[in-house]
Design a protein around this nucleic acid. Structure first.
Lengths: 200, 200
DNA sequence: CGCGACGTTGATTTGCCTCAACGATTGTGG
DNA sequence: CCACAATCGTTGAGGCAAATCAACGTCGCG
């Protein structure tokens, strides 16, 4: 579905870095991919919808969040170039999602829908392996995150966040980072003031 | 590696429920599995070791935990019959683990090591799919857990835990559940007292 | 039997939230 | 392109959730 004109170099190098594929196999992959431009503040997914895609960010910045019992936005993930996004829970069960996925900048994505993903696995089984490896990596990352959330102080989590994702703070507002860390914007501000007093 | 004498019915029905396999395929699977009896309080994995297995619990109860900065045990998972355990992060990267995996009861497990898992994928690629599906499910579960940990009160998380895993509290000590919930044993005790006052 | 592990309860402290107010920055409609 | 509104980050006062520390009764086990 991808026109020859599209530049697939970012996703190609991502995929090839996971697992080597032949030109023929990549051609099949491309034929099952779709491309979309997503304007800032527009949604890839809204609560209640079924997540029909797994998307790779070619360009831009996108957040995944939910609305908690008090009506507050809680950010689960930021994603930028070369990250995959989607709600796997909704995607695999084809049930309605609890999440919102919204562009923070004008973005460009490649995405694959459920039936095309299955087609891909049927035609090139090696992709089953690639997605297994990707899912494993995602699981490792989120397990780490859970451990940090349970055991680390907010100070530590904030500093870890800065170290691990140095590009993000340059691109998203501070209160969004607070939301990601699970604290109020006021509290993050106070932490920053404290850290600044003691030299970053 | 599994002797004919071993009863593989539990793991067989787990696997078949994920994805249908032929007798021939199951035979290959069995040949790459190993079996072990794990005494209460003995370790399947200790911090600093490389996790060489993914294990299916045939019988028993096992906990996965880490030791936090203050030297306290924090339980990440309980696992009982028909659950898989291991430290994927360590397993896939073959790097040393931060986790302990320890039997809470005398247990019996089937396990597969790294090279046998690769052999399995090579001989029966369909297992690649099964493990992808398993990993996806694990990812969904832990994402849900992260959301709860961030957004729910301890009361709610405790009640959710009781509802979702009613067998666990009968088998593990209360302070271990407190550890799993990320609170002190004293605090969980106070929550229970409060809930009891207002009729469970 | 006696010791250690467990669960409970109370007093105090601390981390983080809530609410409120205030400049600074951003963005938008006229 | 300006003016005004909205959003954002900061700061302070007060409150609540959960940790810490300590003491005590109970139970299981060597």
């Amino acid at each position: 579905m991808i026109d020859e004109a599209f530049d697939t170099s970012t996703i190609d190098s991502y995929v090839q870095h996971c697992l080597p594929f032949s030109d023929e196999e990549m051609k099949i992959f491309h034929s099952l991919l779709q491309y979309k431009i997503v304007k800032k503040k527009s949604f890839l997914l809204q609560q209640g919808e079924v997540c029909e895609f797994e998307a790779f960010i070619k360009k831009g910045c996108i957040k995944t969040y939910y609305i908690d019992d008090k009506g507050l936005e809680v950010i689960l993930y930021f994603a930028i170039e070369n990250w995959w996004i989607g709600d796997i829970e909704s995607f695999v069960s084809q049930a309605s999602s609890a999440l919102f996925i919204e562009a923070l900048e004008d973005s460009e994505i490649f995405y694959i829908n459920y039936s095309n993903k299955e087609k891909l696995f049927k035609e090139v089984p090696k992709f089953e392996r690639m997605f297994r490896l990707m899912t494993q990596r995602a699981l490792s990352v989120i397990q780490h995150r859970l451990i940090d959330t349970i055991s680390k102080t907010t100070d530590e989590r904030y500093l870890n966040f800065l170290k691990r994702y140095p590009q993000i703070p340059q691109r998203v507002a501070q209160h969004q980072i607070a939301s990601y860390l699970g604290v109020t914007p006021e509290f993050l501000s106070k932490i920053r003031a404290k850290l600044a007093k003691h030299d970053i």
